[in-house]
Simulated scan of single mutants.
Amino acid sequence: MELLKNGHGETGERTVWWSVFILLAIGTGYMFASGENTKVIMGIFTLILMGAIAFAQRRLKLSLPSFFVNIVYGFIFISVGLGTFGGFYDIPHFDDFLHLASGIMLAVGSWIILQKMLGEQLTARLPNAFIGLYIICFSLASAAVWELMEFAGDKLLNFTIQGRNPDDTMIDMIDGLVGGTVTAFIILRQRQRK
């Protein structure tokens, strides 16, 4: 946590952001040159998302710790850079891995947000049942929002993210729920030890 207080965390965050942003911009350019218009649109949306995250980190009072934001940037690179541009989605269960990892990441993020919003003293007084339910619901709701965005992309922009199989949507949400639930139990266990 000392890294976050002395400014090195912010410098590292910028380095990771620029590294991922440049790699994704190069990938988007390559997809454009290859005539992969759908992947170009996904790349542009991802670059806009990264810009929005960086803006929120600088401007909002509830900015997230640099270590966590770096994990988010790494996840974005793996999912878009390797998955979409690199063809990793053809690897069996790569998508399951990503949705499970996103459930874990969202659960940790929801815990960080709750602590920042309420402060340490008030968070310490919350019952474990509430915290567990909050983390699980946050993870599942976030997975649902992601699936809604995939659905919108398929319907409005002619993407083929979800395909024609509704099982993919449900399995993705289950993966996110499992990741969020396991993480909620780990967070509650650590909380009880303290």
Rank of each mutant, 00 (worst) to 15 (best):
M1T: 13
G7M: 07
G7H: 10
E13S: 11
R14G: 07
R14S: 13
W17C: 05
L23Y: 09
L24Q: 03
A25K: 01
A25W: 00
T28K: 05
T28W: 10
G29R: 09
Y30G: 02
Y30C: 05
S34L: 10
N37V: 08
T38F: 02
V40D: 02
V40C: 01
V40R: 01
M42E: 13
G43E: 06
G43H: 03
I44S: 09
F45W: 08
I48N: 05
M50P: 05
A56L: 12
R58G: 04
L64S: 10
F67H: 12
F75P: 02
V80E: 10
G81Y: 01
G83S: 12
F85H: 07
F85S: 04
Y89I: 08
F97R: 00
L98E: 02
L100F: 15
L100N: 07
A101M: 14
A101P: 02
S102P: 10
G103N: 03
G103W: 00
G103M: 01
I104H: 00
M105N: 02
M105D: 06
L106T: 14
L106F: 07
G109M: 03
S110H: 01
I112W: 00
Q115D: 11
L118E: 11
L118A: 12
Q121G: 04
L122W: 06
T123V: 12
A124D: 14
A124K: 14
A124H: 11
L126T: 05
N128V: 04
N128D: 15
I131E: 03
I131L: 08
Y134H: 09
Y134P: 00
I135C: 04
I136K: 06
F138P: 00
F138H: 01
S142E: 08
A143D: 04
W146L: 12
E150H: 02
F151T: 00
L156A: 15
L157A: 10
T160R: 11
G163D: 07
P166N: 06
I171W: 11
I171H: 10
D172I: 07
M173I: 14
M173T: 13
D175Q: 09
L177W: 10
G179E: 04
G179D: 03
V182D: 01
V182A: 11
T183K: 09
I187L: 14
L188Y: 02
L188G: 07
R189I: 13
R193D: 09
